[in-house]
Amino acid sequence: QVALSRTQVCGILREELFQGDAFHQSDTHIFIIMGASGDLAKKKIYPTIWWLFRDGLLPENTFIVGYARSRLTVADIRKQSEPFFKATPEEKLKLEDFFARNSYVAGQYDDAASYQRLNSHMNALHLGSQANRLFYLALPPTVYEAVTKNIHESCMSQIGWNRIIVEKPFGRDLQSSDRLSNHISSLFREDQIYRIDHYLGKEMVQNLMVLRFANRIFGPIWNRDNIACVILTFKEPFGTEGRGGYFDEFGIIRDVMQNHLLQMLCLVAMEKPASTNSDDVRDEKVKVLKCISEVQANNVVLGQYVGNPDGEGEATKGYLDDPTVPRGSTTATFAAVVLYVENERWDGVPFILRCGKALNERKAEVRLQFHDVAGDIFHQQCKRNELVIRVQPNEAVYTKMMTKKPGMFFNPEESELDLTYGNRYKNVKLPDAYERLILDVFCGSQMHFVRSDELREAWRIFTPLLHQIELEKPKPIPYIYGSRGPTEADELMKRVGFQYEGTYKWVNPHKL
Rank of each mutant, 00 (worst) to 15 (best):
R254D: 06
R254F: 02
R254S: 10
D255Y: 04
V256F: 07
M257E: 02
Q258P: 06
N259C: 03
H260E: 01
L261D: 00
L261P: 02
L262V: 13
L262I: 07
M264T: 08
L265I: 08
C266F: 06
L267H: 07
V268E: 02
V268M: 11
A269M: 04
M270E: 04
M270F: 08
M270P: 02
M270L: 10
E271Q: 06
E271P: 05
K272W: 05
K272H: 07
K272P: 10
P273M: 06
P273F: 00
P273T: 01
A274D: 12
S275E: 05
S275D: 07
S275G: 07
N277L: 14
N277R: 10
N277W: 11
N277G: 14
S278D: 07
S278R: 07
S278Q: 11
D280Y: 11
V281I: 13
D283I: 00
E284K: 10
K285L: 01
K285D: 02
V286Y: 10
L289V: 09
L289M: 08
C291Y: 13
S293H: 13
S293F: 07
E294M: 10
V295R: 07
Q296T: 14
A297W: 15
A297M: 14
N298H: 15
N299P: 07
N299Q: 14
N299E: 15
V300L: 14
V301T: 09
V301S: 09
V301D: 00
L302A: 08
L302S: 08
G303A: 09
Q304W: 01
Q304L: 00
Y305C: 05
Y305K: 02
Y305N: 01
G307E: 10
N308G: 09
N308P: 08
N308Q: 12
P309G: 11
D310R: 13
D310I: 09
D310T: 13
E312S: 13
G313S: 11
G313N: 13
E314G: 10
T316W: 10
K317W: 09
G318A: 11
L320V: 11
L320A: 13
L320R: 10
L320M: 12
D322P: 02
P323S: 13
T324M: 12
V325D: 02
V325M: 06
V325E: 01
P326W: 07
R327A: 15
G328S: 14
S329E: 05
T330K: 14
T330D: 10
A332F: 02
A332L: 02
F334W: 06
F334D: 04
F334I: 00
A335N: 03
A336E: 15
A336Q: 15
V337W: 07
V337H: 07
V338L: 11
V338R: 10
V338K: 14
V338W: 06
L339E: 05
L339C: 15
Y340G: 09
E342S: 14
E342Q: 15
N343Y: 01
N343P: 03
E344R: 09
E344N: 09
E344C: 09
D347V: 07
D347I: 07
F351Q: 00
L353F: 08
R354S: 03
R354F: 02
C355N: 05
C355W: 02
K357V: 01
K357R: 02
A358H: 02
A358R: 06
L359S: 06
L359Y: 01
N360L: 04
N360M: 01
N360H: 06
R362T: 11
R362K: 10
R362G: 09
K363Q: 03
K363Y: 00
A364D: 04
A364S: 12
E365P: 02
V366E: 01
R367C: 01
R367P: 06
L368E: 01
L368V: 15
Q369L: 01
F370K: 04
H371T: 12
H371I: 08
D372M: 06
D372L: 01
D372K: 06
V373N: 09
V373M: 10
V373T: 12
V373H: 06
V373S: 08
A374D: 15
D376V: 05
D376I: 06
D376R: 07
I377V: 12
F378A: 06
F378E: 04
F378V: 05
H379N: 14
Q380F: 09
Q381T: 09
Q381H: 12
C382E: 09
C382M: 14
K383H: 15
R384M: 05
R384S: 08
R384G: 07
N385V: 01
E386R: 03
L387C: 06
V388D: 01
I389W: 01
V391Q: 04
V391G: 04
Q392L: 01
P393Q: 08
P393L: 04
P393N: 07
N394C: 07
N394S: 09
N394P: 04
E395W: 03
E395A: 12
A396H: 04
A396D: 04
V397L: 10
V397N: 02
V397F: 12
Y398M: 00
Y398T: 01
T399K: 00
M402P: 03
M402Y: 04
T403P: 04
T403A: 12
K404Q: 02
K405R: 13
K405Y: 11
P406N: 06
M408E: 04
F409K: 14
F409V: 15
F410K: 08
F410M: 11
F410Q: 09
P412Y: 09
P412M: 10
P412S: 12
S415A: 12
E416V: 04
E416L: 00
E416Q: 05
E416M: 02
L417N: 01
L417E: 08
D418Q: 06
D418A: 08
D418P: 00
L419N: 07
T420K: 06
T420W: 05
T420R: 06
Y421P: 01
G422W: 09
N423T: 15
N423V: 12
K426T: 13
K426F: 09
V428H: 15
K429G: 15
L430E: 06
P431W: 05
P431S: 10
P431G: 12
E435D: 08
L437F: 03
I438G: 01
D440R: 08
V441T: 13
V441S: 08
V441D: 03
F442H: 07
F442Q: 09
C443W: 14
G444N: 09
G444A: 11
Q446F: 01
M447F: 00
H448S: 13
H448N: 14
F449E: 02
F449M: 06
F449A: 08
V450F: 05
R451A: 04
S452R: 12
D453T: 07
D453Y: 03
L455V: 05
E457T: 08
E457F: 08
A458T: 00
A458E: 13
R460E: 08
R460C: 06
P464M: 09
P464Q: 10
P464I: 07
L465H: 09
L466N: 05
L466E: 05
H467A: 14
Q468K: 11
Q468H: 13
Q468D: 12
I469N: 10
I469L: 11
I469Y: 13
E470R: 09
L471K: 15
E472H: 14
K473L: 11
K473W: 10
P474V: 14
K475I: 14
P476G: 05
P476F: 01
Y479W: 03
Y479S: 06
I480P: 11
I480N: 12
I480F: 15
I480K: 15
Y481W: 11
R484V: 02
R484A: 04
G485N: 02
T487R: 13
T487W: 13
E488G: 10
E488Q: 10
E488V: 09
A489D: 03
A489Q: 14
A489L: 06
D490L: 13
E491Q: 12
E491R: 13
L492P: 03
K494I: 14
K494C: 15
R495H: 14
V496S: 11
V496C: 11
G497V: 02
G497F: 07
F498H: 14
Q499L: 12
Q499H: 10
E501M: 11
G502Q: 11
G502V: 07
T503W: 08
Y504D: 04
W506F: 07
W506T: 04
W506Q: 04
